[in-house]
């Protein structure tokens, strides 16, 4: 234990730098996944068969082992940021898409009908009634994707991607050597701390952006 603390006091700036890189790549991938996922969800939620197809495809992404996916991307996207972000977006899509579809589909039909009966057109209904009501469910999906990406982003080190995975892989490669274990531990703990921070952020964001009328 004391060895680890000593390691951290010497290397904290390095770990911090990697952590920031890790956070950024996750944030960028989440942002892209939210844009694609929510848009897709809005387009398909009324059409059962198309929605199912989209959900099946995005769940398949999750079943591909991330190591393999990153490897497959090397000849296509090269090394570094690009393959990392593409893969992370793919993994983040399912929870966001599924929750967008479920959230929109579970809007109380009486509410949707009374909105229609008052003369709201489809766009107004979507923006002012359905999305705000589906929002808590969508945010829940974003939080799940965040947790997924935190761990998977570590694997991006395999394609020279940014983040704490770099330390984890480096440490694992020389396990037994000086501070090798501490390197792995530092990287892992960094991911956990980031995960908690991101989750708290989305939790608070969710509460702030959800109307008091539908907060439990």
């Amino acid at each position: 234990m004391s060895g680890f603390l000593e390691y951290m006091s010497l290397s904290w700036d390095h770990v911090l730098e990697l952590a920031i890189g890790h956070a950024i790549v996750v944030a960028i991938s989440l942002a892209i996944a939210v844009v694609i996922g929510v848009t897709l969800g809005v387009l398909v939620y009324r059409r059962e068969r198309v929605a199912n197809a989209a959900l099946v495809i995005t769940s398949t992404f999750l079943t591909i082992p991330s190591l393999a996916l990153f490897g497959i991307f090397i000849p296509i996207f090269g090394l570094g940021y690009k393959p990392a972000v593409v893969a992370l977006v793919m993994y983040a899509l399912l929870p966001i898409l599924r929750n967008t579809v479920t959230g929109l589909q579970s809007v109380d039909p009486a509410v949707a009908e009374s909105a229609q009966g008052m003369g709201m057109n489809a766009r107004e209904r979507l923006l002012r009634i359905e999305l705000p009501l589906a929002w808590p469910v969508i945010i829940a999906g974003v939080r799940v994707s965040t947790m997924l990406l935190m761990g998977i982003a570590a694997i991006a080190a395999v394609v020279n991607g940014p983040g704490l995975g770099d330390d984890i892989f480096a440490g694992l490669a020389r396990i037994g050597g000086a501070n090798a274990f501490n390197q792995v531990l530092g990287g892992t703990l960094g991911i956990i701390v980031l995960a908690i921070l991101f989750d708290t952020f989305f939790n608070v964001l969710g509460k702030l952006t959800t109307s008091r009328g539908i907060r439990d």
Binding site: V111, A115, G117, M118, G119, L133, G213, I214
Partner: peptide, 23 residues
């Protein structure tokens, strides 16, 4: 246009359908 038509007619349904996220 049905949306314009409906703005001239009041509509009350059994389950009411108040917008829960609005005051």
């Amino acid at each position: 246009n049905p949306d314009n038509l409906r703005r001239r007619i009041g509509y009350v349904i059994q389950q009411i359908g108040l917008f829960p996220h609005m005051t």
